[in-house]
């Protein structure tokens, strides 16, 4: 078993205990030219559950937030996702998303520290195969949000499952 501290780094514990942007998103701004989306993610194996909210305006992620409960890895991953991606261009996000999932699932390609920044703290999760889904669930949910955004400025909802 790899060292627990590689999995539970201080930053992960901090975000796990004190998640940022954990709130429902306020009133929809779709009529004012934004695209407002929310999607649900659920891991039935351990009960991790979230609703991820996004408001996009002019190709920028204007706001990202979530509601949900789960383990420390899941909570930290979700919290840091919102913190890292808020204010970014939608076109940038796809690359970050792919790099993050690549870092946790393939194990071959080293994460690009420039691109992933603080998110590289999750690189140790790949040595704990039973916990990978905890870290990837919010990102899989984000994938669905991006699909919704691509479809245009209608309020949509869907559901990602980590089965």
């Amino acid at each position: 078993m790899s060292d627990l501290r590689d999995l539970y780094q201080q930053l992960v514990l901090d975000h796990g205990r004190h998640p940022r942007n954990r709130r429902a998103m306020g009133a929809c701004d779709c009529e004012k030219g934004a695209t407002c989306c929310h999607n649900d993610g659920y891991n039935p194996l351990c009960g991790d559950k979230l609703t991820l909210y996004a408001r996009v305006r002019d190709d920028f992620i204007e706001d990202l937030s979530f509601e949900g409960e789960g383990c420390a890895i899941f909570t930290a991953s979700t919290s840091m996702l919102t913190e890292a991606l808020k204010g970014r261009k939608v076109s940038e996000i796809r690359g970050i998303l792919d790099d993050f999932l690549e870092m946790l699932t393939s194990g071959e390609k080293a994460p690009d520290p420039e691109g992933l920044g603080k998110l590289a703290v999750f690189s140790g999760v790949k040595d704990f195969p039973t916990r990978v889904k905890c870290a990837t669930l919010p990102w899989r949910t984000l994938e669905m949000i991006l699909e919704d955004v691509d479809q245009g400025p209608a309020q949509t909802e869907g559901d990602a499952s980590a089965v």
């Binding site: 078993m1 999995l7 205990r17 351990c46 420390a72």
Partner: peptide, 22 residues
């Protein structure tokens, strides 16, 4: 304040096998 899944992983590091979940 500690999710069962994290409890399970912590115990696993000590070679203690328990079940975490529903």
């Amino acid at each position: 304040g500690i999710h069962p899944h994290d409890v399970g992983t912590f115990l696993a590091a000590d070679n203690i096998a328990v079940r975490s979940g529903h």
